[in-house]
Amino acid sequence: MARVVFLLIPSIHLLDVAGPAQVFSTAADLGHTYKLVYVSAEQDVATVQGLPLRAQTQWPELDADDLIVVPGWRGPVRMPDAGTFARLRDHHATGGTLAGVCAGADALGRAGLLDGRRCTTHHTVQDELARLYPKAHVVRDALYVADERVVTSAGVASGIDVALHLLSVRHGPRAAGQVARTMVVHAHRDGAARQISMMFRHRSHVDETVHRVQDLIDTRFTERLPLSLLARTASCSERTVTRLFRDATGMTPLAYQTVLRLERAEHLITQGATTETAARDVGYEDARMLRRLRARTGARATR
């Protein structure tokens, strides 16, 4: 049975703990053998939201199949002692995986696990992370980044994405999808997705029919999605799905898909991809359409 050990630091954020914990707890309910363990320097751990948590003060014996998760907190706080950081380093050195949610990346940095690795954190403190750990490569505006069994994330809800990613790596995408559906998570987001993306900006409405259409577009935006397919997904006519989508989001389904493609292509280009490669990756047969879209939106010059 694999253990998921949560290192709880005072002034911790509840969702940074609860999101990943719910993922692995649900995975256990569905037949994957996980045991959740919560450790801290003291039994009672204060949370930012006011609900105290109870943890054990002794670490279990760990092996390479076990995970350590360090949820984020609101600082400045009293950090773990040097022995705890040594424990984090030792777990990685023996083949174990560690995940830092939001400010949890700071604890991994203090343990020396970010040096020479790609990492991320919440967009409001990315500059601070880069300043504290100049040997790390901070990836801007990513939901999560995995590099040699060290995973870091933007925090809050992205802790769920990290946990689903780890499940997918261990048990395959079907298992992660089962957990996501059980948790009523709309989609397992790619770690490279922007922290503040189109998927978030146009999800504040309450039209469940449009949400179903958006779910389809979000997960298959690189494909050709005829309006007839969207209409079948929405169980209504093509004219109705267009009207409902425009009323809820202010744009047509095609315009929404186009922005998702452009947003993803921009991310790929900022990470070093050529315009031609990015165009293919987001579903365009050649780069001419992508160049026109980027020029129209004032994007950076093409490579």
Score class of each variant (00 low, 15 high):
I68H: 01
T84P: 00
L114H: 02
E276R: 06
R243H: 07
G31W: 07
D127R: 14
T274F: 04
S11I: 00
R224Y: 12
E208T: 12
Q271H: 13
P60N: 02
H13A: 10
K135L: 12
T297I: 13
E276C: 00
A28E: 08
E208D: 11
P52K: 07
D141E: 06
F6P: 05
L230F: 08
H165Q: 01
L229F: 11
G72V: 06
V139M: 15
Y284L: 06
A231W: 04
M198D: 00
L262N: 02
V23Q: 11
P134K: 02
A105W: 01
V145E: 02
L30D: 11
D63S: 15
E266R: 12
V17R: 08
E223K: 09
V169M: 08
R280D: 03
H91G: 00
G112Q: 11
A82V: 03
G177W: 01
V213C: 09
E266L: 12
Q43I: 06
Y133M: 08
R303S: 13
R264D: 04
P134I: 04
G250V: 03
A86Q: 13
L268E: 13
R212I: 00
A142H: 13
P253E: 09
A21K: 00
P76V: 10
A55Y: 02
L244G: 02
T120L: 08
A21T: 00
Q126L: 11
V206A: 15
G104T: 09
T120N: 07
L108R: 09
G159W: 04
T258L: 14
T182Y: 10
L67S: 02
A279S: 08
R261S: 07
D127S: 15
Q43L: 03
D63F: 07
R140K: 10
L290D: 02
Q257T: 09
V145N: 01
T297A: 15
V259A: 13
L15C: 04
L7V: 15
Y284R: 00
R74D: 14
S153K: 11
V145S: 03
A142Q: 05
L36I: 09
G177M: 03
G172D: 13
R261K: 14
M199D: 09
V17Q: 07
V179R: 06
A111C: 10
V4I: 11
T84L: 04
L88F: 09
V138E: 10
S158L: 06
Y38I: 00
D66M: 11
L51C: 04
L98P: 05
Y284E: 01
S228T: 14
A99K: 04
L260W: 01
A146D: 14
T258R: 13
G298S: 14
V69C: 09
A82G: 03
T182M: 14
A176K: 08
V206C: 08
T33G: 15
D44K: 13
G100C: 09
S11Q: 13
S25Y: 08
F85L: 15
L67E: 03
E148M: 03
V151N: 03
Y256D: 10
A234L: 12
A187I: 06
